[in-house]
Design a protein around this nucleic acid. Structure first.
Lengths: 191, 191
DNA sequence: GCAGCAGTATATCGGTTCGATATAGTCTCG
DNA sequence: CGAGACTATATCGAACCGATATACTGCTGC
């Protein structure tokens, strides 16, 4: 699981502009999905350089600037559309969303659709195992176990509804590509 | 971060009954929060034994049965009520909930309250950084970045509301401890 | 002008985690 | 009885993480 997240995030951030490791860490934190430690970041950057996806160069002092090379951009795009199961780790999917601007509309919709299918399947699983747990006689789940299961179901339902909105918005923009990018979500589902 | 989750889950499961490693892995998976691999589980069990929290004994073949010892039970209870920040990793909090039956009402409410405060704080942070991102002129966030932020806010809000229900239910049971354990959540917020 | 402190920046270490894989015993059913 | 699925434990290499070491820069106040 691990390094896919790191690779995707680092390559995605470097796609726009070269950065120092330190600044990279700050922006990684700003993305908000997970907190990378230096113990992961610097070895990870070394690995990415070894793999030929990025280049680093010292500028004067001990600072190092990292920048994407073409092979890295290709790898980034691969990671962005790759068909891995993202149900297990929603951070993976959310990170993709954060870089969705680099994908065309069709690919976006395909990706959103696939995620939706995964969630629908998960929802069915959850409901099934809830019925099972409540059904069998001896030792039914306690109040908190039940609350936890119900929360899971509700949050999956709400994620599916969210995806439906994203898909609809994407479709409607594809139909009339003139309407502005930035005013899309504001009225549609403001608090 | 890491081994707290494993320790809490393993000790919690062993609290009820001794188990084999394999069965432990299955029940860990049933909890649904994360999937432990053998490469984590067996070394982890070794560590817990080294630390004096569990004991293992071979039964005939190559099977090993792991059981809790008193020091382990004490450690489990410590992990269950310890005041760590659970905002960063919600699996930690949910795992606690799964073992809430081992805590008394007051401790439960304290724990739920603390979690609620953390979420309220996070909510304020999210809203603040959203305003910031929308406010500053150059390069406003794209549609998906915005959707992501809004989803975060809504899901935190809904988690807070959920906690409010759990707290209310706990309080009402403390007031009238006669009413049954198992019929609590069913009518209150069934689909 | 320089002492002190906060922030920038890179690096490494030990312990831990994970996915893959090896190995072998058991159960089932045709 | 033998093939295939499942139970069960173990280990390897690569990666990850938290803590910590190191050192430079910039600024603030006296």
């Amino acid at each position: 699981m691990g390094q896919i997240l790191l690779d995707l995030a680092v390559l995605g951030l470097l796609r726009d502009t070269p950065l120092h490791g330190y600044e990279l860490k700050r922006r990684l934190a700003d993305l908000g999905f997970w907190r990378v430690s230096f113990g992961s970041l610097y070895p990870g950057l070394k690995r990415l350089e070894r793999q030929g996806f990025i280049e680093s160069l010292r500028d004067g002092g001990r600072k190092r600037t990292y920048q994407l090379v073409p092979a890295g951009q290709a790898h980034f795009e691969h990671l962005l559309i790759e068909e891995t199961n993202t149900t297990e780790d929603e951070r993976h999917f959310h990170l993709r969303l954060a870089f969705f601007r680099y994908l065309d509309g069709d690919t976006r919709i395909k990706s959103l659709d696939r995620r939706r299918n995964e969630l629908v399947e998960r929802l069915a699983d959850s409901r099934r195992s809830m019925r099972l747990a409540n059904g069998r006689g001896r030792e039914r789940p306690d109040r908190y176990a039940k609350a936890l299961m119900e929360r899971g179901v509700r949050s999956t339902e709400s994620d599916i509804a969210w995806l439906d909105q994203l898909i609809a918005a994407e479709r409607s923009e594809q139909a009339s590509p003139s309407s502005a990018e930035q005013s899309q979500g504001e009225t549609q589902w403001a608090k």
